[in-house]
Write a protein that binds this DNA or RNA. Structure first.
Lengths: 215, 215
DNA sequence: CGGGGGTTTGAGTCCGTTCAAAATACGTGG
DNA sequence: CCACGTATTTTGAACGGACTCAAACCCCCG
């Protein structure tokens, strides 16, 4: 097999749907081997470097994107790779063919959207009812699952995949407010920040931010 | 045919899916006559008076609700009839049978959820980027389609289906703030409120609230 | 070493909140 | 039809969290 040379946003297929790690976590897990082969043929894989724009507002919608690996920032104006990303694209006609073959697939997408909707509504509630500090604590707790690890001293360390500005956007506030909130969090010994590294010596303190316990 | 006596929240079927006005506007519009018959058999119709609770937080989810007529307030804690409502209930097994028969139906639900999600994300954006006054103007503009009419003098009149508190909840703010905002809107001649009646002499003024034009 | 993003800090302001009280609308029974 | 109790709406005053604007600071990179 000839060696493939990947270049940003435009690469030959280095990925097979059959071995794709993200498949088990995605809608495609319900596909038969036959349909999976169809998907594998139809998909186009690209790689992106951090900072690259994947789609921009106004781009026509010709299919769906499936993130094999990496992290993406989805904004109102565009979608940007935050980490090195491998992303497959499946054109609408191919998707429809799969949907026809396999009704369960549609069901999975339905479930996905339902979850997204539930999350969006939860965000609406939290934005109006919780202060920035609590929302930030909530975000850290979410990020720890994917970007957190525990060091020798037993301290939780999170490597944030995004800038302060992105955090602000996510929480519906300003970068300045994030900076100030981080400061208060540090003063209260809940977490210490250094660049994109967050250290949390005691997770309980963070949990108390979300659900304050009377002592 | 025996006369049916409707009582709140518990009525014999006064509605047929075949003649239902809301069908053309709902997912069910894709059903064949055969499937429609299935739906008609499966559904259970109930009527509700204003103020009645339709579902409460914690209730098990045994199927879906289809609003034939009326208006409902959907809250985190419950769903309340705001107007007299006729609502059908379809149990999950029946829904699944229909979904099996007709793949397009699933597609329609997918579309529905996609719209809801888009709306929810739009709400998130508006809540953090627009002041209450603009959001209220936006709401009035939305409500006018369903609850608005034009009187002899050419004035747009909207009969709000909800209380101030509900408006506040919808906009993510407080009833007091709504009262105050209404006052400023009246001072600026944009609209005049009297109870649940809103009068808007010039729609352009309301539109300017959303998208201020330089004069 | 000189940009140029990104981040932090400061001071002042404003919008919306909170709490409390008064005014008004509404439904019910007399 | 009116009186009465309750729920809703309105108003006021004080407070506060987050915003705005502006400047300084930091890093990273060429």
């Amino acid at each position: 097999m000839a060696k493939t040379h990947a270049f940003p946003g435009h690469a030959p297929n280095p990925l097979s749907c059959f071995t794709c790690q993200s498949r088990s976590r995605s809608e495609w897990c319900v596909l038969s081997d036959e349909d999976l082969d169809l998907l594998d043929q139809a998909k186009v894989t690209k790689t992106y470097r951090p900072g690259q724009i994947i789609i921009a507002q106004g781009d026509p919608c010709r299919g769906i994107y499936c993130i094999g690996s990496g992290t993406v920032a989805l904004r109102k104006t565009d979608a940007e790779a935050l980490e090195p990303c491998t992303i497959c694209f499946i054109e609408t006609p191919s998707l429809c063919r799969l949907l026809d073959h396999n009704p369960t697939l549609g069901f999975k997408f339905l479930e996905h959207l339902a979850h997204d909707l539930a999350n969006a509504e939860e965000t609406i509630l939290q934005n109006v009812s919780l202060p920035v500090r609590t929302r930030l604590a909530h975000l850290l707790l979410t990020l720890k699952d994917r970007y957190g690890s525990v060091d020798d001293a037993g301290t939780l360390v999170i490597s944030l995949p995004m800038r302060r500005q992105d955090i602000a956007d996510l929480l519906g506030t300003r970068a300045e407010t994030i900076a100030r909130t981080i400061r208060t969090l540090e003063q209260d010994q809940v977490a210490s920040f250094s660049g994109r590294r967050v250290m949390i010596p005691d997770l309980d303190n963070l949990l108390d931010e979300i659900d304050p316990v009377d002592h």
